[in-house]
Design a protein around this nucleic acid. Structure first.
Lengths: 172, 172
DNA sequence: TATTGTTATACTCTATAACTATA
DNA sequence: TATAGTTATAGAGTATAACAATA
């Protein structure tokens, strides 16, 4: 009788996630969707909302004048064709400019504009704050572990040297 | 002299990521892209590759016969319209069936088919293995911390009760 | 022959709104 | 009035292949 009464009063209450309960990729993929939506909302109207590459591109160009599109493409894990559209878009918005690289006529260097620099300054604290505030229920220690472990994984994926060793210009 | 020689021999070697270096959302978003691509590759040809909802839907329907699309939609953070297309697709593939819910004619229950059950059994170990092998350079302890912290965050986002309390059918 | 940037295309995902039928 | 599912559509992202110019 009580068995028949349970029905689905709160359908969420007793849902088990099967093996996904212990599967990191599931959590990464799920949280990615939520955090990206939240980030878009917190940057609404700012020309860098939507999509995963614009913020990184802006900050990298601001920090590394003359950086090449192909380098950024590697760091944001896009192919060159996707990178072209990204740079097109940001150039049209007046955030950066392209110049032919002095040492290689095939390549380009990207340079920040005044507007781009202002926007970078505007979003920098916002991006950091949004990221931390998205995890209100984790401790600073847990946060540090996540940064360390996920940072290590990211660097391995894109081919950056391990943390703390990026001061020396390494061998190829 | 040595200053002029550095040029850009290995362009990746000394790239700083600006504030993104300490921004969790950046790592989540970046790793998400890589892990999703890798998962797609490891499930190539299996009818559940591509896109984030199919695997979860299959395992949830297999585990919870009669589960409603709207419940799954909440757990995978999609709206109902996206859920419809997902279920359409999986029904056409013969992985699950829809039935009108006996207690509410508006609602549906989803049920696994033989093919669906077989596919679920096929992918379960693959998904778990892929997830762990994608992080070859983290310890089991670090892995456990990630599962615990990200799992907690996921449950908060989608409105599931905290871990360990999902045995009791909670109040609404 | 390999690399950098470019263009084109097809495919998928995302977000939004409006609609139906039930409750 | 609110909810479960559905349909339609515009916009954005993704993957792929082919191309030109340069190394």
């Amino acid at each position: 009788m009580a068995d028949e009464m349970k029905m689905q009063r709160n359908p969420m209450a007793d849902i088990g996630l099967d093996v996904l309960e212990d599967t990191l990729s599931f959590y990464i993929r799920s949280i990615n969707m939520a955090i990206s939506r939240d980030l878009d909302a917190s940057l609404d109207g700012l020309e860098v909302a939507r999509g995963t590459g614009k913020i990184t591109t802006l900050l990298l160009v601001d920090r590394h004048p003359g950086i090449r599109p192909s380098v950024i493409a590697t760091l944001i894990q896009r192919d060159r064709s996707a990178m072209v559209r990204l740079v097109d878009q940001m150039e049209e918005s007046g955030l950066l400019t392209r110049e032919v690289a002095p040492d290689d006529n095939r390549a380009q260097g990207l340079f920040i504009t005044g507007r781009g620099r202002a926007l970078a300054a505007e979003i920098r604290p916002r991006v950091v704050r949004q990221s931390r505030e998205f995890f209100p229920d984790i401790t600073d220690e847990e946060h540090a572990v996540l940064i360390r472990v996920l940072g290590r994984t990211y660097r391995r994926i894109v081919g950056l040297p391990p943390a703390g060793k990026n001061k020396t210009s390494g061998e190829p």
